[in-house]
């Protein structure tokens, strides 16, 4: 092939992808790189261009501070609880509405609503539900003879409440994903299992679960990295409190930047949070690759 033709044929992909790539470079990659730089400086919010390079000081300080380390623990705890909760609830919901029954469409629509509802509205209604005096949560508990709980005020309840709201908000995503996967299980597989006389649970364990496992893994990955970066629900419900009990890394970034004016430290915290997501992703791809190889062999 002549060189001219070769060159001409190489152009189209860049025309299609180029604009989006440039956009990402300007509005994501450059700010990210700037964030990396900031994390090595002592920049303050009031003088965002006046920081000086301090090497790895921010990181060194953070990694020795109890407050930061407990923030990491909070993030891990929040993420694990949310992901596990959403996976369990979402999968259960998917199995519950997988088969036809009267009212299935309505049930499915209602079960999807939390995912579609804007976070702000969700937070508003949950603050009202969790209101100490008049909220329906405590009123119901009172009816059962249980005393008032400071859902969003008690350091022992804060993470629980935030996790509950988060699980409520995201479990429909898992449900829809699993439902789509369940519906792609070839019916011959189930039928042949039934003919072979397998019990219901055996069919689920031996046939259905392996079939939806790859989808579940993808959903779990997305759910994990979304949980690590979740901001609005936590910030608006508790703002990181009570007493730092919901102070995840992302909340920490915001507080450090806009309440303590420490842009450099904030960036360093953000980078560490990003590393956490990267580690999760790499682990996922290693595990996924290994199981894919196992299936192939």
């Amino acid at each position: 092939m002549s060189t001219m033709v070769k060159v001409r044929r190489r152009i189209p992909p860049y025309l299609f992808v180029g604009a989006a790539a440039v956009y990402l470079a300007i509005f994501t990659a450059t700010p990210l790189l700037r964030g990396v730089w900031l994390s090595f400086t002592d920049t303050k919010l009031l003088n965002p261009d006046g920081g000086t390079f301090v090497g790895a000081d921010n990181y060194r300080n953070l990694l020795t501070e109890d407050r930061f380390l407990s923030s990491v623990v909070t993030t891990l705890l929040y993420t694990t609880l949310t992901v596990v909760g959403a996976l369990v609830l979402g999968t259960a919901a998917a199995f519950a509405i997988n088969e036809r029954f009267r009212g299935r469409a309505v049930a499915r629509a209602v079960l999807t609503m939390p995912w579609a509802a804007p976070s702000i509205a969700v937070v508003l209604v949950y603050t009202w539900i969790f209101n100490v005096e008049d909220g329906v949560a405590n009123r119901s508990l009172a009816a059962l003879g249980i005393g008032q709980q400071g859902w969003l005020l008690d350091p022992d309840r804060g993470l629980l409440a935030v996790t509950l709201v988060s699980v409520w908000k995201v479990f429909p995503f898992i449900m829809l994903v699993v439902l789509a996967a369940l519906q792609s299980v070839p019916s011959e597989l189930r039928e042949s299992g039934r003919i072979d006389g397998a019990a219901r649970l055996t069919i689920v364990r031996e046939i259905v679960l392996p079939h939806i496992a790859p989808t579940l893994r993808v959903a779990a990955l997305l759910m994990t990295i979304w949980s690590i970066r979740r901001f609005e629900i936590i910030f608006l419900l508790t703002g990181g409190g009570p007493v730092d009990s919901t102070n995840t890394l992302v909340i920490n970034v915001y507080r450090e930047a806009f309440q303590n004016s420490e842009l450099g430290r904030a960036a360093a915290i953000g980078m560490l949070g990003l590393c956490l997501s990267l580690v999760v992703t790499v682990v996922y791809f290693v595990v996924d690759g290994r199981s894919a190889r196992k299936e192939a062999s």
Binding site: G35, L222, V250, Y254, A266, A267, G270, G273, L274
Partner: peptide
């Protein structure tokens, strides 16, 4: 971008 916290980008942005 799925794992980038908005809070991290907000300062450079």
């Amino acid at each position: 971008t799925q794992m980038l916290p908005e809070a991290l980008l907000i300062v450079p942005l």
